[in-house]
Write a protein that binds this DNA or RNA. Sequence first.
RNA 1: UGCCUGAUAGUAUAAUGGUAGUACAACGGUUUUUGGUACCGUAUGUCUAGGUUCGAACCCUGGUCGGGCAACCA
Length: 557
Amino acid sequence: MSEEKSLNFIEEIIESDILTGKYDGRVLTRFPPEPNGYLHIGHAKSICLNFGLALKYKGATNLRFDDTNPLTEDTEYVESIKNDVKWLGFTWQNELYTSDYFEQLYQFAIDLIKQNLAYVDDSTADEIAQHKGTPTIPGRETPYRNRSVSENLTLFEAMRNGKFADGEKVLRAKIDLQSPNMHLRDPLIYRIKHATHHRTGNAWCIYPMYDFAHGQSDAIEKITHSVCTLEFTTHRPLYDFFIQKLNLFPSQQYEFARLNMSYTVMSKRKLMQLVNDGLVNNWDDPRMPTISGLRRRGFTPASIRNFCERIGIAKRENMIDFSLLEFFIREDLNKTAWRRMAVLEPLKMIITNFEEGKTELLESENNPEVENGDGSRTLPFGRELWIERDDFMEEPPKKFFRLGPGLMCRLKSAYIVRCDSFVKDANGVVTEIYCTYFPESKSGSDTSGLKAKGTMHWISAQHAQKAEIRLYDRLFTAEQPDASDQDFKDFINPQSLVVIKNAYIEPDLANAPAQLVQHPDRRYQFIRKGYFCLDKEASAQHLIFNRTVTLKDGWAG
RNA sequence: UGCCUGAUAGUAUAAUGGUAGUACAACGGUUUUUGGUACCGUAUGUCUAGGUUCGAACCCUGGUCGGGCAACCA
């Protein structure tokens, strides 16, 4: 019952605001993605923060699509984003679009012009950049800075009415070309783009810049706490300027450090390159750090939420170990996944003292972590089994707990066996091993007095089903693939996807597609091999399982 | 040479003037019909130099180092 709560710095601010009655104690946040790509785990951090804050302080969160650039945005992305947010378990109060505010933003611009705080500039992009100076060199005025209010009004209206070509003119805020903050050196606020917008179609040919839309959108919605990442810190004075000059609701922005994770990249631009260059199969390739990729890989919403909770919120640059995400998915799946057996690299075992043609049916629990095992399934056992090739060693080292000549091992939920001999082919590859089983060592009623150090998984050769198994691993071999001058794509892990076409799985797994219909969250632990889920491409005729994550391996041999 | 911002174990994150704690990772052990799980234990940390104070991770000053800022992107 300890009420020990440690707050992150944004929660501290909110609690203080609630205490002092700022915004009447109201908390309204927003999640503002641009629909120009798929959401990734970094966005999940922001989603969990924004929606989590609202949940914690009995407020609400708007989902607002920041769609001010018609060239890059698409409804495909809108749909995927909504799907991902829902899947993570969050509900927004309003689904909104910055494009809903285009008319209002246009009027804001006119307001600014009338206050002599904005002007139409005919300079080229190059000229404007030239005149802007550098962080250490002050900017200079362009020849158009002192146009009259009425001329600016006329020109801006002409811009809207399509009288000019792309790039011919822009609208700029008139602030301070000498400012040490580059964003205050007369930033562009409207540009001409004769382009079709995913929502407004051809209604507009001028579009507001992000910096002229974001702060005002927050204000229009009366967002109380506008949370974003660190790189926007220097934009804040600009947003505050517009809010003040336009006399809008004073939304306040707070910045936190974005998520970085080892062995992956976290920018939409780079992720898009991977997709476009065919280095992964799509945005939802299970190797991608996208929400849709993680979902297809088998991650659960809870595991991602717990991860986001644990990494915390702060302002310092960070690099989270990929292993932390793995920890949370293992923690979740350990409690829920059904145990099954699958042999990835098969080796034939023949139990010489087991009656030929006989099938014995054994019981095995679905999940030992759950009381009463979460039910059980039946396992057929016979004279010929498939075992994992690396569970046998011709010359095993001292601490090898599995099979080798003369060694004993338990077959999970079955019997203890002893390896008596083995045969090799012409290339020296072991093709079969011969074992003796001990009938009195049957699982659950063992009276043999024998003890086996290890336990192996196995599958009756006669009853084995086939499946394709896709083994996924980290996408990059470098901890920070985008940290050096070298192309990040050079660091792609060639082993990030290993496909096993003909793995053997236990017969019950043939029901996996049907089970998934009844239990959409069904996951499997292939004993000793890791956590797996049925891939979306799988069918009853062609089973495909994706490896979400391996089991932790304390042996590391 | 400007402005903004930050610095606590390997990685993150607490401690808000009073015993530097937690998680992951690492290592060791116990249990185990998964070399999984569970449980127990070990090691590793306040960037630096001063100052204020009975007492500083915390407050002040200087330094060092990191990140960001000059797209008609968001």
